[in-house]
Design a protein around this nucleic acid. Structure first.
Length: 557
DNA sequence: CTAGGGTTAG
């Protein structure tokens, strides 16, 4: 009963009950301590700790992990040093405290000297190195393990995913299946997140199949992860089905749904879901509002977005954070209301950050305001001198107004500062295999076929009235050569490969690591009409659904 | 009653 109250965060009830207990044993004292500790009230926890007539390992460890979980690392260490006896849980709690504070040296020191390590100790270290981005160290620990459980595998897979090694994550998944490891809900959650990250829909669907086979429902995190996976893999229909199957929808479920529709350019749908969410009595949080505002932004619902921004505080008691201001600046900027966006930047309750200037830079790119773009970019350079993406954006801005001298200066700046442009690449999954393409790819085995097809397509497109927008290419080169370079952008190659190799009725899903360029965007619109295909492109910013010659972003991205 | 993994936005 007591721990039931504690677990449901009904600490006041727990306390009343505790005070009326005729006999308070050590377990009831410990329940109170851990209750306060885990709810962040270390003052009360300490109070009960001091008052408790006798203390065992549980008592001390509850205090230790309480301090650790509330960011009080030094206090946690003091408890650890003072405790009269320690079991493996205490050791693991202390290691976990270091891990949470990214102090891997201290964590490994303890790990090496602890008297008996169990599987949790190993798992904590793998997780720690994974989260710290030290993926080789994580693997070193993982490889040394004698026994692995579901958590060990998920920790390692999650480490690969979160450090951008999606393919290694999937390989390890295959190895895990081959090893006959049992999977639990968390392993599935983790796998969905990996599939979402690198957008491998077919693989994700197979994992979904395994989830069903294992007899797990869509409760807790798994359902939400599945939902996010379908959205991030570009399959809205499957996402909707998953949404319907999640019986207990929590705030994350709704947020995923709203943000998902928003990223795909279906702002109206996102707002419908937001409406439904409120009708079913789920209280929106800050993340919800980021989704709602970005839905308005991507759909061009400017006034509605401004209203939602104000309603945050008035109707939902939420204080707008930096993210929300960024959305608002983006919203105004995209709609061409640059003056309002600029004045909002001046009246911010805090210093504008790089992403806000980035939103302004994006807006000035769309509306060809070179001066504002230049000013924004300079601010970004001050705040983030190594941001390669910003050099490219500014460079394109100059190029589009023909200021080749400025473009040249930027290139020199990039070289002097050692800023490297992130190479663009695109990929597509066909028959369970991922095909990668880079600009002007020369390594794909079917390149001859792809290029021939693109040439052929090019003629048809010219007949249909398509004019390449060569001004966005970074260099000042001869027109013909520029056009040639554009034709071979990675997203075009991936799309061509998809058309050549996929059943005509199926959508072509392509993922690009950077933002799609304007010319490719125009070209793919045209291709969707000529070839009568649905082409779904995920770029670093959002989704584009090309169909019948137009895009779901309505050229507004 | 104490330790380990997982979901949404930018």
């Amino acid at each position: 009963m007591l721990s039931g109250f504690v677990q449901r965060e009904r600490l006041a009830d727990a306390r009343l009950l505790f005070e009326r207990l005729p006999e308070k044993d050590i377990v009831s004292w410990n329940a109170m301590i851990s209750g306060y500790a885990q709810n962040g009230n270390m003052i009360e926890a300490k109070h009960f700790f001091v008052e408790s007539p006798c203390k065992d390992v549980f008592t001390w460890t509850a205090m230790l992990s309480g301090y650790a979980q509330n960011g009080m690392l030094d206090e946690a260490r003091m408890v650890f040093d003072e405790m009269p006896e320690r079991n493996s849980v205490s050791w693991n709690a202390m290691i976990s405290a270091y891990v949470q504070h990214r102090k891997m040296v201290e964590a490994e020191e303890l790990f090496n000297v602890m008297p008996c390590r169990n599987i949790s100790s190993w798992n904590t270290m793998v997780t720690g190195y994974g989260q710290a981005g030290m993926i080789d160290e994580a693997r070193r620990i993982f490889d040394k393990m004698e026994d692995r459980d579901a958590i060990s595998w998920s920790a390692m897979i999650a480490g690969y995913t979160q450090s951008g090694h999606g393919e290694d994550a999937l390989h390890l998944f295959i190895e895990m299946v081959r090893n006959g490891a049992r999977m639990n809900r968390s392993s599935f959650t983790c796998l969905f997140s990996t599939c979402a990250d690198i957008a491998v829909l077919e693989c994700g669907m197979q994992v979904h199949g395994r989830l069903v086979k294992a007899g797990y429902g869509l409760g807790c995190f798994v359902g939400n992860a599945l939902l996010a996976m379908y959205f991030k893999c570009g399959s809205i229909d499957e996402a909707y089905i998953a949404f319907c199957e999640i019986s207990k929808k929590d705030v994350v479920t709704w947020n995923t749904m709203i943000a998902g529709y928003a990223r795909h350019g279906f702002g109206d749908k996102a707002l419908e879901v937001f409406d439904l969410m409120r009708k079913t009595g789920t209280k929106p949080d800050e993340v919800t509002m980021v989704g709602v505002l970005s839905a308005c932004s991507h759909t061009g619902l400017v006034n509605k977005g401004i209203d939602f921004f104000h309603s945050m505080h008035q109707d939902f008691g939420l204080k707008p954070r930096a993210e929300h201001y960024t959305c608002l600046i983006d919203l105004l900027g995209r709609a061409g209301r640059l003056a309002e966006a600029k004045s909002l930047m001046k009246d911010l309750p805090f210093q504008p950050d790089a992403t806000m200037w980035g939103a302004l830079l994006g807006a000035s790119r769309i509306h060809h305001d070179t001066d504002l773009g230049k000013k924004s970019a300079e601010k970004i350079f001050e705040l983030e001198p190594d941001n390669a993406g910003m050099y490219v954006l500014l460079s394109n801005l100059y190029a589009s107004s023909g200021s080749w001298a400025e473009v040249g200066k930027l290139r020199v700046m990039m070289r002097d500062k050692g800023v490297k442009k992130v190479p663009g690449f695109s990929w597509i999954e066909v028959n369970n295999k991922v095909h990668n393409f880079s600009v002007g790819d020369t390594v794909h085995p079917e390149k001859a076929k792809i290029y021939a097809f693109l040439e052929e397509l090019d003629l048809k497109m010219k007949k249909a009235g398509y004019v390449p927008s060569t001004k966005l290419v970074l260099h000042d080169v001869e027109e013909e050569e520029k056009e040639h370079m554009l034709k071979y952008h990675s997203e075009k190659l991936a799309v061509a490969y998809g058309i050549l190799n996929m059943t005509p009725t199926r959508p072509i899903r392509v993922i690009k690591n950077l933002r799609v360029c304007e010319d490719c965007h125009n070209a793919i619109k045209c291709i969707s009409l000529i070839e009568n295909r649905l082409i779904i492109l995920r770029d670093s910013n959002r989704f584009h659904h090309f169909r019948g010659g137009s895009c779901s972003c309505r050229d507004y991205w």
